[in-house]
Design a protein around this nucleic acid. Structure first.
Length: 944
RNA sequence: GCCCGGAUGGCGGAACGGUAGACGCGGAGGACUCAAAAUCCUCUGUCCGAAAGGGCGUGCGGGUUCGAAUCCCGCUCCGGGCACCA
C-alpha cells in the first residue's frame, strides 16, 4: 500500500492540478460546453434548450495583444467576470461571455517596428501567446465569438459603420442622427440650390456629415509621427502613449461630430449603473457650461486697421452675465481673428503705462506678445506658474449696460479653443481677471456684494447685485440666479446677446498617420472631394508595405505628418467605377485610430460570422435586451483608465447606430465595474536602478537587500521594466490555475487595488487541497464520502454557506465568498468526515471559482459533467434559523456579558435576562437603570 | 488650486449604526514522525495581571446617538482625475 511509502498518491498539488485542468479543458473544448446559442442564424444550434432562460451579457474590456505577454495583474477582471458568468449560468441564465483582441494600433505597430516584422505577423503571434495564457485559466468563454479587430471580416464592418456615420447628419431639432439623404432632400427644396455647381452642393452636404474633414487645430506629435485626439494628450502637452511633446497646428483631418451628442451623452449617464467617479469624469470632460453670449461693439485704436484685419463686434461667452456691469476690460486670445483689426499704430489717450509692455506702439507690443505666446509650448505655459501676462491692443469696446468704453487686451490666459476665444473681464467676480487687473492696473467694480468681512479678491459666490443699474436695466438687489435670468432677457430684447451653452468637448479627431489601422473606405475624385466607396468594395484592405514605420521626428515640430500608406502609389491611385463609369481616384492615406474597433466589438461578439450585417437584428435585440433600461450589456468590467476615452467614444458610436435604427438600445453598457489594479513592490539599488524583485530578501528588521546590498522598496505597478513582473505561467507551474483564480478572487474587493504577494497564494492552494481531501482519500485516490445525511451541525453550516456564497457571488463579493467556502471546508476538515451532500454542495459552490477541481470532484462523486451547467444549490430556509443566539449585554454601550438565549426571545424577556446578569447587577450596584435599549435577540444596552 | 476615492493587527483584508479584527498569510506551541517535510490541533490587536479579570484600541480633533470603523463637521497623509474652460 502506498501509505507505507509515505507518499500520497493523489494529493492535490501542482502536478495533479495541472493534469486535472488539462483534462477538463480538453473535455470542455470537445463538448463545446461554454458555447452559447443565438436565437437564430448559424450559431443557433441548441437554442430550444435555453430559449426560456433570461439572458445575461457579461463583458470584459478586451486586451491589446502586446509582445510581452501577460502578468498576473492582467487577468484579475477576466477571472472576476468568469466567476460571475459561471454563477449566472448556474442560476438559470443564458450567459454570453467571450474575449477578443484589440489588435490594431500603436502597441502592435511599435512592437513590429522593433522586431522588423510585419505587424500582422507579430500581432497574430502575440494573440496566439495571449490566447494560450488565458486558456490555461479555464475561462468559460464561447471561443467561436473571440474576434480580433484586425480580422478582415471585422474591418469590413468597422468601415461599414464609419460609412453609416459619414452618411448621416445631426438634426438639431430632433436631436438625433438622420440619413444624409434626408438632408439632401431638404436642401434640394431650398431656393438657389438648383443653381449651385455640383461640387458646391457636395461641399455643403459634406459640411453637415457626422464624419467630416476639417482644417482645424490638431495635436501633432512628431515623436509618434501622427496626430492625436484631445483625449490622447495629457495636461502637460504630451502624448499619453510614449510621453512625446505634442504641438498644436492646423491640418485637414477627419473629424467625428461627437459634440452634437454632448447633451445626450451627459443626460443619459443618469440612466446607467456606473461608478459615480466615472460618470463625473465624463461630465467634466464634456464640460457643459450654461450662460450667455454677449456682443460688445468695438472700435479700433488710432491708425488701425493697418493690417487689414476685420473689425466688428466682439462676441464673448460668459457663465456670469449677471456681472456684466462689472466688465471693466476685455481680453482676446492671441490667435483671435479680430486682433489685427483692433491694433493701433499709437497708444491712444487713456493708455496706462503698465498696459504697453514697454513698447512704443501697440503694433510692436502685440506682435512681440503673439510671437512669444506662440513660441511657448503648452508645457512652458504650465511652468510659468500661471502668471498673467498680456498687452493692450489700443482698441476699445463698449460695455452694453453702461455705454462706457473699456480697453481690449490680448492675453494667453484666454484660449482660442473654448467659447468664442474672447472674454469680458470681470475682475471683482473672477479670480483670473482679478489677478490680471492687479498686474495691469485695471479698474475693478464689484457687482455682487461679498459677505461681511470679506477680505479676499474676487468674490465668486452668491450675493445681492450692486452697482448694476443703468439705462434700461437694473439688477441691484437680485441674487445671482435671478440677475442672470433678468440680464439674459434684456440682452435678447436689446439684441446684445442671448442665452448659450458651450462645451469643453471638441469633435473627435479621427485620422492617424499610421500603417496598422483600418483604412478609410473613402477615395477622392479630381475635385479633391471625398467619395464613399460602396458597401460591395468593403473591406478596404491595407496594402503590403516593406516600410510601414511612421516617420517620427521628436525634435522637429515643423515637420509634416506623412501617412505610411502614401508610400504605396499603386494602392493610392485606383481606377474604379462608382456609378459614373471607370474613373481615377486617389485613396485616403490616413487610417482610423485604435479606438474604432473597440467602439463596437461587443456587438460583433453577438454574431461573429455574419457577412450580411454587422450583427443580425434579432440576435442583437435578444442579447442587448435591456428590460427597460438604457444599456444592453449587463456587466462590463475593465480598468478605470478608459473612463473617458473608450467609454465615451463607444457610447457615441452606439447612439449614432441607435438613431439610425441599427441597434435597439440608446446605450451600450448598462452596468460598469472598474476592477482594481494589482500592484507590486519594486526595489531600487543605490544607483536608483531596479533590481529583480524575486531576488530581494527581507531581514527580521524589515530591511530589504539584494545581493547583500540594501535596496529601497517602492509600491507601484507591476511591469517588465520594474523587474517585478510575475507571470501566470509561474503560478500555474507551482500551484495550478484554480489556485491562481482563487487567490486573485480572495485578495480583496474586486474594485480595489491590492498588492500582489506571492507568499499568500499558498493559502488558496491549501484551501483547494483541504476541499479535495474532504472528498478524495489522497493516499489511494478513492472517493470517500459517506452515503448518509449530514449531521445537524453540518447541515446548518451548509445552509449558511450556500446562502452567504450565493449573495456574495451575485454582488461580485468574491473575497468574502472564498472566506465562507473556507469556513465550510474547515468545518468538514474538523469533523473528520464528509457526507455526500456536503461533498456535492462543495463542488457546486466551487464550480464558478475553481471550475477544474470542482469538475473533477463532481465526476468523482459519480456525476456527469459539467458541474458548471448544474443548478446552483439553494439553502433550506429552516436550517438558516438558529435555535439559540448569543445575546450581547452592554452597559453604557460597553460589552459586559454574553448570554445564550432562544432566538425567539421577546424584548421584555431579553431585558429581564440582561438585568439579571451578575455582571450587570454588579455594575448597577442597586440602582435602577435610567434606560434599557432592547434589540432582541442580539443586544440589550443598559444605560446607567 | 478644484473634484473624486481611501486610511482597520506584523501583512492582505472582514464587519444591516449593535460582540471590531471573519477568512487567509506570517508567527508561537503541540500531535504525528527515527527525523524532516506535509498534515492535524491550540494560541496569536495591544497594555496591566500568575490567573480571574480589566484598561486602551479602526489616521487625527470635535459632534450626533443608548450605542460610531460605519453618520455629520474640521484636519493630516496616500492614490486618482481635471487643471487659466471664462
Amino acid at each position: 500500500m502506498s501509505e507505507a511509502a509515505g507518499v500520497p498518491q493523489a494529493r492535490y498539488d501542482a502536478t495533479l492540478a495541472g493534469e486535472i485542468e488539462a483534462r477538463w479543458q480538453a473535455w470542455w473544448d470537445s463538448d463545446g460546453t461554454w458555447e452559447v446559442p443565438n436565437p437564430s442564424g448559424p450559431l443557433s444550434q441548441g437554442w430550444e434548450a435555453v430559449a426560456q432562460r433570461p439572458k445575461a451579457y457579461v463583458l470584459d474590456m478586451f486586451p491589446y495583444p502586446s509582445g510581452s505577454g501577460l502578468h498576473v495583474g492582467h487577468p484579475l477582471g477576466y477571472i472576476g467576470t468568469d466567476v460571475y458568468g459561471r454563477f449566472l449560468r448556474m442560476t438559470g441564465r443564458n450567459v454570453i461571455h467571450t474575449i477578443g483582441y484589440d489588435a490594431f494600433g500603436l502597441p502592435a505597430e511599435q512592437y513590429a517596428v522593433q522586431t522588423g516584422q510585419h505587424p500582422r505577423v507579430t500581432t497574430e503571434a502575440n494573440i496566439a501567446n495571449m490566447r494560450r495564457q488565458l486558456k490555461r485559466l479555464g475561462l468559460a468563454h464561447d471561443q467561436r465569438r473571440a474576434v480580433a479587430t484586425t480580422d478582415a471580416g471585422f474591418v469590413r464592418w468597422t468601415q461599414w459603420i464609419f460609412l453609416r456615420i459619414y452618411n448621416s447628419w445631426f438634426d438639431p431639432e430632433q436631436q438625433r442622427a438622420r440619413p444624409i439623404s434626408e438632408l439632401e432632400a431638404r436642401l434640394a427644396d431650398e431656393p438657389g440650390w438648383a443653381e449651385l455647381a455640383d461640387t458646391e452642393r457636395r461641399r455643403r452636404v459634406d459640411g453637415h456629415r457626422l464624419a467630416y474633414r476639417a482644417n482645424a487645430m490638431v495635436n501633432w506629435c512628431p515623436g509618434l509621427g501622427t496626430v492625436l485626439a484631445n483625449e490622447e494628450v495629457t495636461a502637460d502637452g504630451r502624448s499619453e502613449r510614449g510621453s512625446y511633446p505634442v504641438f498644436r497646428r492646423p491640418l485637414t483631418q477627419w473629424m467625428l461630430r461627437i459634440t452634437a451628442y454632448a447633451d445626450r451623452l451627459i443626460a443619459d449617464l443618469d440612466t446607467l449603473d456606473w461608478p459615480e467617479p466615472v460618470k463625473l469624469m465624463q461630465r467634466n470632460w464634456i464640460g457643459r457650461s450654461t450662460g450667455a453670449t454677449v456682443s460688445f461693439a468695438s472700435s479700433a485704436g488710432p491708425g488701425a486697421p493697418r493690417s487689414g484685419g476685420p473689425l466688428g463686434p466682439i462676441e464673448v461667452f460668459t457663465t456670469r452675465p449677471d456681472t456684466l456691469f462689472g466688465a471693466t476690460f476685455m481680453v482676446l486670445a492671441p490667435e483671435h481673428p479680430l486682433v489685427d483689426g483692433l491694433v493701433a499704430d499709437a497708444w491712444p489717450d487713456g493708455t496706462r503705462e503698465r498696459w504697453t509692455g514697454g513698447y512704443g506702439t501697440p503694433v510692436e507690443a502685440v506682435a512681440a506678445y503673439r510671437a512669444s505666446a506662440s513660441r511657448a509650448s503648452d508645457q512652458d505655459r504650465m511652468s510659468e506658474a500661471r502668471a498673467k501676462t498680456g498687452v493692450f491692443t489700443g482698441g476699445w469696446a463698449t460695455n452694453p449696460t453702461t455705454g462706457r468704453p473699456i480697453p481690449v487686451f490680448v492675453a494667453d490666459y484666454v484660449l482660442m479653443g473654448y467659447g468664442t476665444g474672447a472674454i469680458m473681464a470681470v475682475p471683482a467676480q473672477d479670480e483670473r481677471d482679478w489677478a490680471f487687473a492687479h498686474a495691469y492696473d485695471l479698474d475693478i467694480v464689484r457687482t455682487v456684494q461679498p459677505p461681511e468681512g470679506w477680505e479676499g479678491g474676487a468674490f465668486t459666490g452668491d450675493g445681492p447685485a450692486i452697482n448694476s443699474a443703468g439705462p434700461g436695466v437694473n439688477l441691484d438687489g437680485m441674487a445671482v440666479a435671478e440677475a442672470k435670468a433678468w440680464i439674459t432677457g434684456w440682452l435678447e430684447d436689446e439684441g446684445h446677446g442671448r442665452g448659450a451653452t458651450v462645451y469643453k468637448l471638441r469633435d473627435w479627431l479621427f485620422s492617424r498617420q499610421r500603417y496598422w489601422g483600418e483604412p478609410f473606405p473613402i477615395v477622392y475624385d479630381d475635385d479633391g472631394l471625398p467619395v464613399a466607396l460602396p458597401e460591395s468594395m468593403l473591406p478596404v484592405e491595407l496594402p503590403e508595405l516593406d516600410d510601414f514605420a511612421p516617420r517620427s521626428r521628436p525634435d522637429d515640430d515643423t515637420s509634416e505628418p506623412e501617412p505610411p500608406l502614401g508610400r504605396c502609389q499603386e494602392w493610392v491611385l485606383v481606377e474604379l467605377d462608382l456609378g459614373e463609369g471607370p474613373k481615377r481616384y486617389r485613396r485616403e492615406l490616413n487610417t482610423m485610430p485604435q479606438w474604432a474597433g473597440s467602439c463596437w466589438y461587443y456587438l460583433r461578439y453577438l454574431d461573429p460570422t455574419n457577412d450580411e450585417r454587422f450583427v443580425d437584428r434579432e440576435v442583437e435585440r435578444y442579447w442587448m435586451a435591456s428590460g427597460g433600461k438604457a444599456g444592453g450589456v449587463d456587466l462590463y468590467v475593465g480598468g478605470v483608465e478608459h473612463a473617458v476615452l473608450h467609454l465615451l467614444y463607444s457610447r457615441f458610436w452606439h447612439k449614432v447606430l441607435f438613431d439610425l435604427g441599427e441597434v435597439s438600445t440608446p446605450e451600450p453598457f448598462q452596468r460598469l465595474f472598474n476592477q482594481g489594479m494589482i500592484g507590486a513592490p519594486s526595489y531600487l539599488d543605490e544607483r536608483g536602478l531596479h533590481v529583480p524583485a524575486a531576488e530581494v530578501v527581507e531581514d527580521a528588521g524589515g530591511v530589504f537587500s539584494h545581493d547583500g546590498r540594501t535596496v529601497t522598496r517602492e509600491m507601484g505597478k507591476m511591469g517588465k521594466s520594474l523587474k517585478n513582473s510575475v507571470t501566470p505561467d509561474e503560478i500555474y507551474e507551482t500551484y495550478g490555475a484554480d489556485t491562481l483564480r482563487v487567490y486573485e478572487m480572495s485578495m480583496g474587493p474586486l474594485d480595489m487595488g491590492r498588492p500582489w504577494n506571492t507568499r499568500d497564494i499558498v493559502g488558496s492552494h491549501r484551501l483547494l487541497q483541504r476541499a479535495w481531501r474532504a472528498v478524495v482519500d489522497e493516499w489511494d485516490g478513492t472517493t470517500r464520502v459517506a452515503d448518509e445525511a449530514p449531521d445537524p451541525a453540518t447541515a446548518r453550516v451548509l445552509a449558511r454557506t450556500v446562502a452567504g456564497v450565493t449573495a456574495d457571488y451575485a454582488a461580485l463579493r468574491f473575497n468574502t465568498a472564498v472566506a465562507k467556502i473556507n469556513e465550510l471546508v474547515n468545518h468538514l476538515t474538523k469533523s473528520g468526515r464528509c457526507d455526500r451532500q456536503s461533498g456535492e454542495t462543495l463542488a457546486l459552490l466551487l464550480a464558478p471559482l475553481a471550475p477544474h477541481v470542482a469538475e473533477e470532484l463532481w465526476a468523482r462523486l459519480g456525476h456527469q459533467p459539467s458541474v458548471g451547467l448544474q443548478p446552483f444549490p439553494t439553502a433550506d430556509p429552516a436550517l438558516l434559523v438558529e435555535d439559540t443566539v448569543t445575546l450581547v449585554v452592554q452597559v453604557n454601550g460597553k460589552l459586559r456579558d454574553r448570554i445564550e438565549v432562544p432566538a425567539t426571545i421577546t424584548a421584555e424577556e431579553a431585558e429581564e435576562a440582561a438585568l439579571s446578569s451578575p455582571k450587570v447587577l454588579d455594575l448597577l450596584a442597586g440602582n435602577t437603570p435610567r434606560k434599557v435599549i432592547s434589540r432582541p435577540p442580539s443586544l440589550v444596552n443598559v444605560v446607567l
